[in-house]
Design a protein around this nucleic acid. Structure first.
Lengths: 329, 329
DNA sequence: ACCGGCTCTGCAAACGTTTGCATAGTTTCA
DNA sequence: TGAAACTATGCAAACGTTTGCAGAGCCGGT
């Protein structure tokens, strides 16, 4: 039923080789023949079988992307970037969600390995040990995780953290809480690093946590924060920040009048919250695209000359309504 | 470098046929040999090449799923269900985002067709005409779209709409606005159908719209609603409802005291909004799983006996804080 | 002793491509 | 005019599997 290269060849009155070449190495076949072949193919509705092609070329034209949790609104946006760029580069993408489970993640990489030219690991949860087992089975590109000299795109948060600190300082805050995310997370380490770099003599930082990077952890964090007597909060991410704001509202603490709140990620709902959340926007979609770029680069270049293996994306503080000058007590 | 069936055969001292059979038709090979083969394969780290297998069996072991827009929080959740169920059934899934573009969507189906055993179309934006062109190129399963006698899983909203209406009526609302979503959308038609079914003599419905199903359309809708003098709103979806609430807050209309608001979808941020949004929860993840079930069923059964081609999932009103008794004016 | 029927295994052909090598035709140049 | 160098095409082997067919060995019944 499906139309093969043989059908096209027969119909066009040429050999299969010619048809094949008309598609893959156009300059090897006479313009006239080429046109004829292409038209016949079009007329018959021929589309090359990528599996068969892959069998011989060793390239599949696919790659995989693994995310920890699709229901975390952070990931769909980077996925969107991956998606878009992949299509431009004529790759198809396999998606997998490992449910925050490192073992599952490793299994997925191994399962994918044969069907793809490479895989993009988004905020990988794997231990170094597990990583060692999969590195080498296929080409890997990491997003927001730095592992040895593997290619990676990193959304450096240091700059954003500095902007957040300076913003709060300018408003007059002198005692600020930072709510840690998961201890093992690269992102959290990165954000703390930014915190230390941005340290200033006129501001005291109170570190709390770690907390789960989820809305549900907000109340716990909020209660601790209130007890600390700070005037502003920087949360590990927006979900946590929103959870905190929700609890603050319940406890009658007005945001931003009595407590300023800053998040990280700029997930869609950050702008829709009341009050809209001041947050550090990451370039998720661009990160996705960059990861694809890195990967195709890795696959097409000779391999010897690595090129740029690391791409750092900066971020940007977006000031909305959840931050203002502290109430004078 | 990669280990093939040949390597295993040589190492185990049997023919490739035997190795192949040890994996695919275990009862055709002597238990003892089988064990030996399996162990050798394990030791060498052999994983069958699905492309090669697919070439001969005609099955790829993959399927595709196409969504209109990954950044719409509705889709990642159903995607998650698809994902999970697919893995259980030992399928890999291709993901594509058509950016709300019907033409793109059609192209994607055609591009995928050769690499998959079937594709799941999520809230397809294609016209009937475009659909006719792709039906038949591969097996299709629809989510939230009813097209001829193609298999589909539908999240019927009628029941949810009735619950919403009854809820508002019980609270004492007598004049309620419904904010339409996109005119052409199956979901919107379905919700209006539920609206008519739930019609009651003691309640007047004011239909407004259509509006884009997005947060940004909220202000426009809110302003119209205020002018209508209703005491409650049922919005086409949560994004729109949240946009409306945001505008209501800006205009000093208190929710829920002066205006009750009901959404549809129960996206994650519905529960995180202030006030938390009363909404009709769809079983997204289950819908995703059901779609996969339908698809594998379609592929494995003889084909003649269709089985159940349509799966209807009901939904559930979740009452939160955005609805209450109307203020007496 | 022989035959029929098992059970297990191997041989080789296929699946739809790409590609190295060979060939036929055309041009270039001495 | 003939060799050399291209250009355009075809032939056939390969990629890693699955599977129809056939053969080898064994068992039980006559």
């Amino acid at each position: 039923m499906p139309v093969t290269i043989q059908d096209v060849a027969r119909e066009a009155g040429v050999s299969v080789s010619t048809v094949s070449r008309a598609f893959t190495v156009p300059d090897l076949v006479k313009e006239e023949t080429r046109q004829h072949v292409l038209q016949t193919a079009e007329r018959l509705g021929y589309r090359p079988n990528r599996a068969a092609r892959g069998l011989i070329t060793g390239k599949t034209g696919n790659f995989g992307v693994i995310v920890p949790d699709l229901s975390n609104p952070f990931f769909p946006t980077v996925l969107k970037g991956v998606q878009a760029r992949a299509r431009e580069a004529d790759y198809a993408v396999f998606l997998a969600d490992c449910d925050e489970n490192a073992t599952e993640e490793m299994a997925l990489v191994q399962a994918m390995a044969k069907q793809v030219d490479g895989v993009i690991l988004c905020s990988s949860r794997m231990t170094q040990n597990q990583l060692d087992r999969v590195v080498g089975t296929t080409s890997l590109v990491f997003i927001n995780r730095q592992v040895r000299d593997n290619p990676a795109v990193l959304m450096g948060a240091a700059g954003g953290m500095r902007q957040a600190i300076d913003h709060l300082a300018a408003l007059g805050h002198r005692r600020v809480a930072f709510l840690n995310g998961p201890k093992a997370s690269w992102s959290n380490r990165e954000r703390r690093r930014g915190l230390r770099q941005a340290a200033r003599h006129d501001m005291e930082i109170v570190e709390l946590g770690p907390f789960a990077p989820r809305f549900e952890a907000g109340p716990h964090a909020a209660d601790l924060v209130i007890a600390e007597g700070v005037t502003a909060i920087i949360a590990f991410n927006d979900l946590l920040a929103l959870g905190v704001m929700s609890r603050l509202a319940d406890r009658g603490v007005a945001v931003p009048e009595e407590m300023s709140v800053v998040g990280f990620d700029d997930i869609p709902m950050a702008g829709m919250a009341t009050p809209p959340l001041t947050t550090v926007a990451m370039q998720n979609e661009r990160a996705g695209r960059a990861a694809v770029d890195l990967l195709v680069n890795l696959l097409t270049v000779s391999g010897a000359d690595a090129g740029d293996l690391r791409r750092e994306l900066d971020c940007q503080l977006i000031v909305r309504a959840s931050t203002t000058v502290p109430a004078r007590s």
